[in-house]
Simulated scan of single mutants.
Amino acid sequence: MLDQTAKFRIGEVVKHRLFSFRGVIYDVDPQFANTEEWWQAIPENLRPRKDQPFYHLLAENDESHYVAYVSEQNLLRDTSGEPIEHPSVHELFTGFDGTAYVRKSGSALN
């Protein structure tokens, strides 16, 4: 469920504030909803607060495509206008308008 305080929306293209990857949001958690082990594996100086929205992304960098889980504090809007090349994009979304994708009705990532 999308929290009303979430800064970004499903279908929006974003980029990571610190690392060289970008992606399209396909789900939002109102606050941290991953494992404690996952959170503890992040170096302490980079570890995000848990009390903020976290976004599920179909992500890509120059080397690969993957799924990422990113805190709101670490995301920026991607203004490149470039589409995401992740192979699962077409399973979840229809057309791209240069800023965001439109989610297919009834779509779910397995």
Rank of each mutant, 00 (worst) to 15 (best):
A108W: 13
Q73V: 15
I10G: 04
I10H: 10
K50I: 06
S88N: 15
D62Q: 15
V89E: 01
R22V: 01
R9M: 15
H56D: 04
W39E: 02
Q73K: 11
V67G: 09
E72T: 07
G81W: 12
A33P: 07
Q40D: 11
T99G: 13
P83E: 07
G106W: 00
R22K: 15
P83L: 08
F19T: 12
L18P: 05
T99A: 11
E60A: 07
Y66H: 14
R49V: 07
L58K: 04
K7L: 14
Y101T: 07
A68V: 07
L75P: 06
D51R: 09
L18Y: 06
I10Q: 07
R17F: 14
R47P: 07
T5K: 09
E91C: 01
Q52Y: 00
P30S: 08
G98M: 03
D97Q: 12
S71L: 13
L58N: 05
A59L: 01
N110R: 05
V67P: 01
D3S: 12
N45H: 15
D78A: 02
T35F: 04
F8Q: 03
G95C: 03
Q52I: 02
V89L: 05
R47C: 08
S20R: 12
S80F: 03
Y55K: 10
G11Y: 04
I10S: 11
D3I: 10
Y101W: 15
S64A: 10
Q52D: 04
P53C: 08
N34T: 09
R47G: 10
V70W: 13
L58I: 13
M1S: 15
T5A: 09
G81I: 03
